[in-house]
C-alpha cells in the first residue's frame, strides 16, 4: 500500500520527509516500546505509535523504518520533524487511537509483522 493511501485511510496529515510515491508498505507493527521495535526486521513496515519524542525518530533511523503512523493526535515538534527529514522518514499524524489505526490498516490488507 502506498504512503498516501494509508494517510487517506486514517484521515492523516503528512509531515517530515517528502513522500516516496513508489514506496510500498506491506506490514505494520504497533508499539510504544522502542526496544521492542529494535528487535525485528522492519523492512517495508509502518510503525504505529503514540510515543512522540526524539527517541521515536532515532529508533526509526536505526531500524530503517521509513513511515511512522502517529496516533492519539500526538503532535511532533520541529526537532522531530527535522530528524524525520534528515533521515528520510515520513510521519503520518492521525487523531485516531492506536487500536483504531491498527484495525483500519489490518482491514485494508496490511499484514502484521508476526
Amino acid at each position: 500500500m502506498k504512503i498516501r493511501e494509508i494517510a487517506q485511510l486514517v484521515d492523516g496529515v503528512l509531515v517530515g520527509a517528502p513522500v516516496d510515491e513508489f514506496y510500498e508498505v506491506e506490514k505494520a507493527f504497533a508499539s510504544d516500546l522502542m526496544s521492542d521495535v529494535l528487535r525485528f526486521n522492519m523492512d517495508q513496515t509502518v510503525l504505529i505509535t503514540g510515543l512522540c519524542n526524539n527517541q521515536t525518530m532515532r529508533t526509526c533511523e536505526m531500524a530503517d523504518i521509513r513511515v511512522i503512523l502517529m496516533g492519539r493526535d500526538k503532535q511532533p515538534d520541529q526537532d522531530m520533524i527535522d530528524l524525520a527529514v534528515e533521515n528520510d522518514i515520513v510521519i503520518i499524524k492521525s487523531r485516531y487511537s492506536i487500536f483504531k489505526l491498527s484495525g483500519i490498516l489490518y482491514g485494508a490488507g496490511i499484514q502484521p509483522l508476526y
Binding site: 516500546l33 526496544s35 519524542n53 521515536t56
Partner: peptide, 15 residues
Amino acid sequence: EMGYGAGMGLPNIKK
C-alpha cells in the same frame, strides 16, 4: 516514558 526500559537492551546487543 522515553520508550525504553523493556529489558531488551543487552539481549538485543548480544543478538
